[in-house]
Design a protein around this nucleic acid. Structure first.
Lengths: 234, 234
DNA sequence: GTAGCAGCGCGACTTTAGTCACTGCCCGTA
DNA sequence: TACGGGCAGTGACTAAAGTCGCGCTGCTAC
């Protein structure tokens, strides 16, 4: 661990769930949390297990995903510091609907179901904040459904390329350059497909002159052309 | 309209959101709601519109769905009396993520964003109830994602047949009989595909001896066989 | 160094999904 | 009765997705 773990109260505040609580209230809540450490690749919990409480990522990165019987994965979300995970089963009492794994060494603030429940009763505005967070999650899920049911893998791939290019691309004489942050396998998981299709589609985009691929290094030659692929019949 | 509209307070209570409020509190809330009538086929609102408030179905049936640019539909949920619709954008303030249409002549209790917001601040337990409802919705969405990304249309169709057979099937000498409640087109929308595939898959199941099809009349000949199709690599 | 392993490229193939165009049926109504 | 509309069945086809198998590279651990 490279640096000392941040103050828990501060981490809680970052979530947005608790941003308008007084420092003393935050301390009170922080007192009820347990800090848990997970190393990269470790499971926080698995789909189907009974829900024990709310998890908040204070450091690191986690992936929420579903696994099929044949071993395929579908990523529902990747959450970084300040995000909460499993807000919902805390309230409806059911089992976790998906599994969560740490993608990096991560630190998680954990609040038990009971405690958080009680806390929400005392602080109605916190409950509303939680609703807003859950709302955002719902929106993302609807977005995934839309993609799965209306778009091709090619389009989904182009969409993620465009997003990455805009987020971390660097303008060079050759075009907008960037590196893929994940392996083909991981991208496939996120798009709900298999590795080969990522590879093939990248090659195909290259053959069409829209991008250039060298392992994980990507050069966008024709951003306009990429966007055109997204417009058509999404 | 065949019968008089039910008492609003009673309708609210049915939602489960308000089940532990006192009658006088219910009356207070009911006073803040507006009754709206929609005839079959009418849109309650469309995807992308700014959210104005919470809708509660007190009579009738509504469908929540997404539409693609090419005209395909993906049904997210069908809600009957007592269910709320669009709980989430009420809190995160964003636009509606999907469209909602009345499938029958329906009566909707409408509560404005402001009023409901204020109400939740006064009654934290209501907010928690809403969270539970949203939780259930989230679960269903995750279920849809799982289906879309891991199963074939054939399997999804078999799953709905099994569900329908168990719900409303009648045991006869020939097998478990029931009628499809919707047109092939509607089933296709719910499974996220096109009419032809429903027709073809039904015929294929018939050819395999698992069911018998006569228009909308279905006889399940081999329930065990149908379930076997679901087990395999879901 | 080299053995092992993860990641990637790719060809050949099968299966599933989707499209288009048309036919026929039932039913209500002009 | 004739006409039209909604719904269902179907053949022929294309496109997309997924599977299998293999070979290559580059890295790391021993």
């Amino acid at each position: 661990m490279s640096h000392e773990s941040p103050n828990l109260a501060a981490a809680l505040q970052k979530t947005g769930l608790f941003s308008n609580l007084t420092p003393s209230e935050l301390q009170l809540l922080a007192a009820r949390t347990v800090r848990k450490l997970f190393s990269s690749g470790e499971l926080l919990f698995s789909e189907g297990e009974p829900c024990t409480g709310l998890h908040i990522v204070s450091r690191g990165k986690v992936r929420i995903f579903k696994t099929s019987m044949s071993g395929r994965e579908q990523v529902l979300a990747v959450e970084g510091p300040g995000s909460s995970v499993a807000e919902l089963p805390v309230f409806d009492g059911g089992p976790y609907p998906a599994s969560v794994v740490a993608l990096e060494d991560s630190e998680i603030a954990f609040i038990s179901r009971r405690d958080f429940h009680a806390y929400c009763m005392e602080h109605p505005d916190v409950a509303l904040k939680v609703l807003a967070v859950v709302g955002a999650r719902l929106r993302r899920l609807v977005g995934i459904i839309e993609e799965l049911s209306f778009t091709t893998i090619r389009q989904r791939l182009v969409a993620t390329l465009v997003k990455l290019a805009q987020a971390e691309g660097k303008q060079t004489p050759r075009g907008l350059e960037f590196r893929l942050p994940d392996s083909h396998q991981e991208i496939a998981n996120q798009l709900g497909t298999v590795r080969e299709l990522i590879s093939r589609n990248l090659m195909r985009l290259q053959a069409e002159g829209l991008i250039e691929v060298d392992a994980r290094h990507i050069v966008v030659k024709d951003m306009r052309g990429l966007n055109a692929l997204l417009e058509a019949s999404s």
